[in-house]
Design a binder for these strands. Sequence first.
DNA 1: TTGGCTATCTATAAGGA
DNA 2: TTCCTTATAGATAGCCA
Lengths: 184, 184
Amino acid sequence: MGRKKIELKKIECPKEKSSKYSKRKKGLLKKAEEMAVLCDSDIILLVFSPTSKPNLFYPHSRPLGRILERLSNMSEYEREERFDLSEILHKKGLIYTLTLMKLFKNKNPNENHNHSSGRDEVQLQEDDKVIELGEARELLDENTSILRNWQDPHRVDDLARLTIMEDHLVSILSLIKKVQIEQG
Amino acid sequence: MGRKKIELKKIECPKEKSSKYSKRKKGLLKKAEEMAVLCDSDIILLVFSPTSKPNLFYPHSRPLGRILERLSNMSEYEREERFDLSEILHKKGLIYTLTLMKLFKNKNPNENHNHSSGRDEVQLQEDDKVIELGEARELLDENTSILRNWQDPHRVDDLARLTIMEDHLVSILSLIKKVQIEQG
DNA sequence: TTGGCTATCTATAAGGA
DNA sequence: TTCCTTATAGATAGCCA
């Protein structure tokens, strides 16, 4: 695909590398867009380079809420909830959190939704594994704060905005860290 | 790039569509891999199709923890925390949460880390905006649960695993929903 | 970092297994 | 869904701006 075939290994010359990065990033995005349109496929593409700004693309600009709807075969109850959430996503714009995991055991998202005396739980436990309410609120305040300011992010390509992404992650991780992982 | 030029619009014939999806997905991943290697670039690619299994790729297999390290120019304090977190990521495997946002106002992740009387805060407020502790714990329990079971997700390509991704998101969103967004 | 400009390499459309 | 083949459209290497 060029005057010469090139070897598949890291380009050391910085000038050359950033030039190729620029071109290939463009090409990759184009491919992703084509595929999204042709195959009616949802694609999320996140590209970082050591030297340039990070790029995030949602080629087909399908609302991410709809992506969620496709993700699993779900019960009627869940489906209703999903649509409800989609509505909210659509109306208010939203924070989109992609959580990826490899193993998952015995998890049922609808099981623990009944709790009226959460405060007692915390006051009863005093070891490191108990979340302090302040920490919990901090996380949730952050989520809601983001939620309020989020609007249909079709394309984000400046560092400042992606920094937030990290901040949020770090915040959650800090929280988790404090909660202490049992298998430590 | 074929015997004939094709029009850029959704392919209606399902058979043809899935065939092209398969080919293009492969091609897109190859491109991403090449770029990751050549340009020393970090890439995250998430592809869904209506008819086939969703795919997640980390072409260059660079630990996502390192991606985070690159994401922003950060203070010394933050940098220390980051490395600390990276260590954890590396040691325990981890949940990776990408939170993407467009607008962000007056947020400083280090500002609200001091709180010793969070419980009071909650007990003082009784309106819809107050998070119930049970809900907060539910979210965090989930996070830690995922955390425990997560191991170096180089490639995830089956639906079951990605379903969790959705579950987690839905769980967070449910929580947020209950918290009530001020601009409702 | 992006945008030409070719020559050349590569992905892929079509069609069938 | 993936794999094969061949002809062709499309991406990009190298070089210059």
